[in-house]
Design a protein around this nucleic acid. Structure first.
Lengths: 138, 138
DNA sequence: CTTTTTGCAAATGATTTGCATTAAC
DNA sequence: GTTAATGCAAATCATTTGCAAAAAG
């Protein structure tokens, strides 16, 4: 999503276009990797020194809702936010917490359909492959 | 794994058979559902009032290593521990955090193989379908 | 008797909440 | 002007750590 599309989307939703939102959007694009809220804040702080963590958290959640980022909760270390929203999965190192992309398709539609059978309103499927990264495995 | 097998396994590994470990094993079997460390402690406390949370955490991790439980980190609420270790997946309600079993096979071997290509020592694959449970969706 | 395991208290890390102030619209 | 969004401080929640005491082998 471009900066302009973001502005349009926010206006369409009756939400405000703030410098924080624009800069967080830009920071995510520039970091271009799985980043924690803290890391996003650090980047944003370069241009907006008073930016606050709660704002970053709220904004990342908003962006997730807009389909602009994917949340990756691994259980080891903080939640990471992924700027890639296309179909791909992740590996997670149990030791150092490193998250890497795994370009393997899963039939998400089939899984969502199965989940919906029980009345569950499914909207996403996240697959994590756990183990030890090359470095931590020695 | 039976209680007797657990005792044998611990001895084989040179680890000690303690009442805490036996009772936590029993509690997991009795609860027979996705339970948090706190919930396991509550159950264990019925028979061992002084049991402590750090012991429960350490023991659940040990049991995970022994393949007796599966860790389910959802990012909403505490980590849950699943006594079912056969091939199945989970749904997670983004609103209330409820975790339910999803009996859909995924070709885990294929995923692990793909993950290993990059030198990653993969050993598990966890799939979470996110959305809203029937209750939270209205 | 040696070493692991436990319980307790305190620390840590991540995230969320309350609320007065600021700034979009 | 109104209302949403922000920043700050403090609270909360889950988990981990340090360490002395207890207990398994």
């Amino acid at each position: 999503m471009t900066e302009h599309e973001l502005q349009q989307t926010l206006r369409d939703r009756g939400q405000r276009v703030t410098p924080q939102r624009i800069l967080i959007h830009r920071a995510i694009g520039e970091l271009d990797r799985h980043a924690s809220a803290e890391e996003v804040l650090a980047r944003v702080s370069e241009s907006l020194p008073n930016a606050a963590l709660p704002t970053v958290y709220a904004t990342l959640e908003l962006f997730e809702e807009l389909g602009m980022v994917r949340r990756v909760s691994t259980g080891v270390g903080p939640t990471l936010w992924d700027p890639r929203t296309d179909d791909h999965q992740h590996t997670v190192c149990r030791s150092c917490g490193a998250v890497e992309d795994l370009d393997v398709g899963i039939d998400a539609e089939r899984l969502l359909r199965a989940a919906r059978r029980g009345g569950f309103r499914a909207d996403s499927a996240e697959l994590l492959v756990g183990g030890l990264c090359a470095r931590c495995a020695h």
